[in-house]
Simulated assay, not measured.
Amino acid sequence: MKKRSKMKCFLGNESISYSKLINIVVYYIVMASYLHIHGHAKINPEEKQVPALIVFGDSIVDPGNNNYLATIGKANFLPYGRDFPGGIPTGRYSNGKVPSDFFDLQISDLLTGVSFASGVSGYDPSSAKLENVLSLEDQLKLFKGYINKLETTVGENTTSTIISQSLYLVCTGSNDITNSFFGSPITRLQYDISTYTDLMVNWASSFVQELYALGARRIGVINAPPCGCLPSQRLLHGGLLRACAEEENKASILFNNKLSFQLASLNQKLAKSRIVYLDIYKPFLNLINNPSQSGFEVVDRGCCGTGNIEVSVLCTKLDPGTCQDASKYIFWDSFHPTETTYRLIVHEVLQKSLGDFF
């Protein structure tokens, strides 16, 4: 039997007011957290139980929040979601599930989750502003509202326990590299890639410290993927052979090295913190370089349409070129991986880094 995804989008139904919506979200978190805290004397590191998984970031972990925003950056229509349970296009940027759905830690069914993530956002505030989506600052404001409601519902002490024992996942950065830097002549006139990645790390560090100040202690930060190997970037910058764009991959590596160093520094600086650098670059690139080892056949284009440019509104059910079996493809559209790819990468990341949170 397939395990039903517990990850909820935050923004909910358009007809529900913000106040009522946050009450509903808090109810789910509180009930699961109360049962966890009082049903178990303490968190068991071997069982890796936490009250909740709380997610921030971009389209890689957006379960449908952009559905309720005035933006073209949506994925709530077929063929997106065609392999999701029930064949429902939920707003996830994939043929099925996304990483936050798989990040269940193999723990108690009492775990619940909520994602504040918004597709097309990034560490760079301009990434979200250009597409009218939720910036990290906006996502943090929603999280603060959630904390206030928790305090009203269960009191400050229980809220503090829930917030400190939950696990936080931050996943963003690829839009900054591909769109806000390499896709923007203006940005490239203002900064070189070294300076821009310094800015990205500063924004990332500030966000992690803000989460910590609000009570978060277990914070996982996902690094940048090999951005130059995304089908859209192969088309734009990979030459006639559509090879991986070398400069974009170098930018990802540069950012990742700086991010890893900064997170290690924060771990030393912030008392009782478990700030974990989660590497997806290496396992992702390994799938691309050795596809047959994992059953993949196509690595340089997505399943949807031609697989070169289709993403969001350009990926439609009317396109006759869309593949029949997405599991043979590393990428679903020109920017986002398939469910199979996500599952394999998340499994490897958890195998390597899960223990670092406890």
Rank of each mutant, 00 (worst) to 15 (best):
Q106K: 15
G119P: 05
D109W: 06
D62N: 05
Y80M: 12
L105P: 01
A70R: 15
G57L: 04
A117V: 10
F116A: 07
Y68T: 08
L111T: 13
N66R: 05
G96Y: 05
L69C: 10
G57N: 07
G113C: 07
I54T: 06
T71G: 01
I60V: 14
Y93L: 15
T112P: 00
P51N: 08
Q106S: 15
K97R: 15
N95Y: 13
I107W: 05
D58T: 11
Y68S: 12
P99Y: 03
K97S: 12
R92F: 13
G81F: 11
F102D: 00
S121K: 05
L53K: 10
S121I: 06
Y93F: 15
P89C: 10
R82Y: 08
D83N: 15
V61C: 11
D101T: 10
S115G: 00
F77M: 14
V98H: 04
N65Q: 01
L69T: 07
N65V: 00
F103M: 11
S118T: 07
I107L: 04
S100Y: 03
L69H: 06
Y68H: 11
T112N: 03
K74E: 09
L105I: 08
D104Q: 14
D62A: 07
I107K: 07
A52G: 02
L111V: 10
F116V: 03
G91F: 00
K97A: 07
D58K: 09
V114R: 00
S108C: 06
D58A: 13
G81Y: 09
F102E: 00
D109H: 08
Y93K: 05
